[in-house]
Amino acid sequence: MKRILNIILGILPLCALILIGVEVFISNELAGTGGELANIESRISQEAGEREVLYTEVASASSLLVIRQKAETLGFADPGKNQIISLAPDQLPVAALYHLQ
C-alpha cells in the first residue's frame, strides 16, 4: 500500500510537468499563428470587396438603361402606335409557351 502510494506520488509531478510542457508548446504555436489569421481575414475582406464590385457591375449591366442602349445598337426600335397583340399559341415564342403550361 505504501509502495503504491509512493509510486503515485512520484508519477504525479512528472505528469504535471509533462502537461505544463505540452500547454506551453501548444500556446506558443497558437500565439504565433495570429499573423496567419490576420492574413486570412485580410483576404476575406478583399474577396468581399471584389464581390461587392462584381455585384454592382452585374446590377449595372442588367439595368434597363443599358438594355435599352444595347437594343438600340442592335437595331431594335419602338413599335408604332398600331400594335398587334396576338394570343394564338403558335405565334408565341417557345419560352412563353413553356410559361403558359
Partner: peptide
C-alpha cells in the same frame, strides 16, 4: 489582444 508585430494572439 495583439503581439508586438500587431498580429492577433489567438489564445489572448
Amino acid at each position: 489582444e495583439k503581439d508586438a508585430k500587431g498580429a492577433p494572439i489567438l489564445i489572448g
